[in-house]
């Protein structure tokens, strides 16, 4: 087992800086998620850790050793690709045995090891099949079994769930996490899906424009976003950002409730909200509209759980409120979090 560390790692493709001086380090046995929109550099960073791309600057360490000059095969890593990259001309058995053969494991020990890995993912009965005879979910398990079979120091996963349908994805997420907890191998997981990231990660590194904007537990990055990008990227609908004098004020749609719905009292900031549209989504109602009064015209969204019974209606202006401690303040120029100022 090992940790992975990136020190001022950057990657330049022609004129494009795909990864721009990233500092990052995993803890022992941690599940770290790299989250960001497409083109944010997360996959490039993962490929550099894997050794498939050469960094143009900085160092990558695996288990405390600088691996910049090591080829992928010498890094004691395993990777699951978005496409799964199963070898189409080999049976499932031979796919899983492939890394063992490459490592020069004695022929007699291979079947036992393959069966162990197959059993981990419940694919023992598929061993004779070819990849094209498998469903998406089965392929994903084979790819995972192939990754786990030679017990690597680090797992790298590149959007392994994105080719599954929504229902399967939820159960695959669950299995993936249980499996990672059981074997306790340091894992770096790339995704653009915030639900996956929040659900799976011990910590999340939110990336944008080739930089890590924030790294922290799911609760930290969600509740205490470091800048406006993180605040806007996480959450659905995203954080409302309202301009006030020299700062941006942010508050989550689910904290922006009718005044009477705040039953526990506390220090409330009241904002008159003109509702233009109500979306009923079953568990939630999403209200679209604009503020009135002091922040005239600022477009905001509110999300009311159905347990909030307050009456709302499109076309009306109602008093909504946010608890003062839910207000986050950001610098207007840099977008970074600043200290509270009364708006």
């Amino acid at each position: 087992m090992a940790t992975v560390e990136a020190r001022r790692v950057s990657k330049q493709f022609g004129d494009v800086r795909a990864v721009d001086g990233v500092d990052l380090s995993t803890r022992e046995g941690e599940f770290l998620v790299l989250l960001g929109p497409s083109g944010c550099g997360k996959t490039t960073l993962l490929r550099m850790i894997a050794g498939l791309e050469r960094p143009t600057g900085g160092e990558i360490l695996i288990g405390g050793q600088v691996v910049n000059d090591l080829p992928p095969r010498a890094r004691r890593i395993a990777m699951v690709f978005q496409s799964y990259a199963l070898y189409p001309h080999m049976s499932v058995f031979r796919n899983i045995a492939f890394p063992l053969k490459a490592a020069g494991m004695p022929r007699a020990e291979i079947p036992q090891k393959v069966e162990w890995a197959a059993a981990l993912f419940g694919i023992e009965r598929l061993l004779e099949r070819k990849p094209r005879q498998l469903s998406g979910g089965e392929r994903q398990r084979v790819a995972l079994a192939r990754a786990v079979v030679r017990e690597p120091a680090v797992f790298l996963l590149d959007e392994p769930l994105s080719n599954l349908d929504a229902k399967l994805r939820a159960s695959a997420r669950d299995e993936l996490q249980q499996f990672q907890r059981r074997i306790g191998t340091t894992t770096i997981y790339v995704t653009h899906d915030q639900v996956e990231a929040m659900g799976l990660g011990d910590r999340i590194a939110v990336m944008e424009g080739g930089r890590v904007r924030q790294i922290g537990t799911p609760a930290e990055v969600y509740d205490e976003p470091a800048d406006t990008f993180v605040a806007g990227f996480l959450g659905s609908p995203p954080t409302n950002l309202v301009e006030a004098a020299d700062v941006l004020v942010g508050f989550r749609p689910e904290h922006f409730l009718p005044r009477e719905a705040h039953t526990d009292g506390g220090n409330l900031t009241t904002l008159p909200f003109h509702i233009t549209r109500v979306e009923y989504l079953g568990a939630d109602r999403i209200l679209y509209g604009a503020l009135e009064g002091r922040f005239e015209g600022a477009r905001v969204v509110a999300r009311l759980a159905t347990t909030v019974e307050a009456k709302v209606q499109a076309g009306r202006t109602q008093d909504f409120a946010v608890r003062a401690r839910e207000l986050k303040f950001f610098d207007k120029v840099t977008g970074l979090r600043t200290t509270a100022r009364v708006p």
Partner: peptide
Amino acid sequence: IPPDLEEAAMIDGHSRLG
């Protein structure tokens, strides 16, 4: 041929030639 396949093989313990 998707480059992923070769990359997977390289991670699984082979050189590019392998």
